[in-house]
Simulated assay, not measured.
Amino acid sequence: MEYLAIQMSVLLGGAIVVGGLVGWWVARFIYHQAATACRIELAGLRRNYEDSARENVNVRNTIRQLEGVLRKIGTPPSDTEYGQFLQVRKTLEKTRLQYQSLLDKCHQQQQVLGNLTAELQGNKQELAALQAALSQQQGVITTSSSVPLREDTFSAANRDDLTRIQGINPRVASKLQALGIVTYRQVAEFTSDDLYSIQRVLGAELSSVPEGWVQSAHSLFQQQSPPLQA
């Protein structure tokens, strides 16, 4: 019986020792976990403190700058600064007026350009119509004249000075030559229809039908032709 009690005592003592060791190990583990968490939290608090300190410094610097600005704003400007301000204001107003004037001129130029463009289109159409009419009139003159009116059929030696015909100036003579009329004989053989056609083709160059051309050209042609021998 005593032996059993001794065994129970030994077992109970061993259990107490083992339990104490396990408890000590568990307590130490919990202590390390808590210490690690505390160190981590302490490091975070230190970082927060440092960030707050830097932010506090920045806020103080900003406050100082704002105080300087407020002091500068509260100080009345000197005469020199006020004069410079007025000068800048006048320059700005002058520049604004110049810009507005240039903008108005630009709008006017755009309107004028639009009108000129429309007028140019109208002139092009009118020119095309006049060219078509001129081609038709040239065809009428060429077919109605008894002498061929092709300019390339006459050499420079066979051409006559059309300005000697009464009523023909150099400008009209140049236009007649462009139509293939280069000799006195061609002008002398003009019919009334030919003269009216010439007037329509030349337009503003002739205010009336050149009826005197035929007689003058006929006289010059007779002077040019040699007399017949008996």
Rank of each mutant, 00 (worst) to 15 (best):
G68C: 07
L116D: 04
L97T: 10
T80M: 09
R54W: 07
R39V: 12
E67L: 08
T75M: 06
G74I: 02
R60Y: 01
T62I: 14
N56E: 12
A43R: 05
G122W: 00
Y99F: 15
Q65M: 15
L66S: 12
Q110H: 05
Q84A: 12
Q110W: 00
G74R: 00
L45P: 03
I40D: 12
S78R: 01
E67R: 05
R39Q: 08
L103K: 06
K72D: 15
L92W: 02
N56A: 13
G74Q: 03
R47I: 06
A37V: 03
Q121V: 08
K105V: 09
K90T: 11
C106W: 00
S52C: 08
E93P: 00
Q121F: 01
V59M: 10
N61I: 13
Y99K: 10
L120F: 13
T36H: 02
S52V: 03
R60W: 01
L86M: 09
L66F: 12
E41K: 04
L42T: 06
P77C: 02
I63Y: 03
N115T: 07
Q98D: 15
N48V: 11
G74T: 02
E81V: 14
S101L: 13
K94H: 05
G68N: 11
L66Q: 13
Q109A: 15
D79I: 15
Q121P: 00
R89H: 05
T117K: 05
P76I: 04
L97G: 04
R47Q: 10
A118F: 01
L70K: 01
D51T: 06
A34C: 06
K90W: 02
Q65V: 15
Q98F: 05
V57D: 14
P76E: 05
R39L: 12
N56M: 10
C106M: 03
E93A: 06
D104T: 10
N115K: 04
L103A: 14
N48Q: 14
R71V: 13
L97R: 03
H32G: 05
Q111F: 02
E81A: 12
E67G: 04
L120N: 06
R46N: 08
A35S: 08
Q111D: 09
H107D: 06
N61E: 13
Q33T: 14
Q84V: 13
P77H: 01
Q100N: 13
L66Y: 10
N61M: 09
R54A: 15
G122L: 06
Q100F: 09
A118G: 07
A43E: 12
T117A: 06
L116H: 02
E67W: 00
Q121S: 08
R60Q: 07
T36M: 05
E55H: 00
L116K: 04
G114M: 05
Y82L: 12
L97D: 10
R54I: 14
K94Y: 00
